[in-house]
Nucleic acid binder design. Structure first.
Length: 153
DNA sequence: GCCAACGTTGGC
DNA sequence: GCCAACGTTGGC
């Protein structure tokens, strides 16, 4: 079992939206590195749900991967913002996984708080200039981050 | 709204 | 295959 972090702008799709929808296809990722991480995901993998580009960026919930990656249908839809004219059904360029709601954290674990923790030195999320929307998390990082939930901010 | 950090594109 | 220009991400 592996662990990941996935970013979403809460104005677009928040942890509360995921709770309502229960599962959601993670469409629209158009970055090769992020795509490759999704292709490496397997059913049951853990996901930290991260709120980005908002008042309080940080980890807001826990989700899990439903099944292995499959082609992102929005790449074939000319009406979609994510349409990719260079992608073919025979050789789809973009993949996605379905993500399932597990729980909302009791409080948002803020990026500023995560940056202060030496335990997370080297974690891609807290490195300067990180723009990846999907990134791997080690078991140790996963355990440490979730252990912060029960502490004061 | 600014800007740093990158990824992508396209001319050569 | 290089690299400048351009676009996007995302924190602040």
């Amino acid at each position: 079992m592996n662990y990941w972090l996935m970013k979403s702008e809460p104005d677009e799709f928040s942890i509360d939206d995921l709770r309502q929808r229960k599962t959601e296809p993670w469409s629209g990722v158009r970055n090769y590195q992020a795509r490759n991480f999704m292709r490496a995901m397997r059913a049951g993998d853990g996901v930290l749900f991260y709120h980005s580009s908002c008042a309080e960026p940080g980890v807001a919930g826990v989700a899990s991967v439903v099944a292995s990656a499959y082609p992102d249908p929005t790449q074939f839809d000319p009406k979609s913002d994510y349409f990719d004219a260079k992608s073919t059904r025979a050789e789809p360029r973009w993949s996605l996984v379905d993500v399932k709601f597990k729980r909302k954290l009791k409080r948002v674990l803020a990026l500023t708080e995560l940056k202060d923790r030496r335990e997370l030195d080297g974690f891609a999320l807290v490195r300067a200039g990180n723009r990846l929307s999907v990134l791997p998390v080690t078991r140790a990082q996963w355990d440490f981050i979730l252990s912060l939930e029960g502490t004061a901010a």
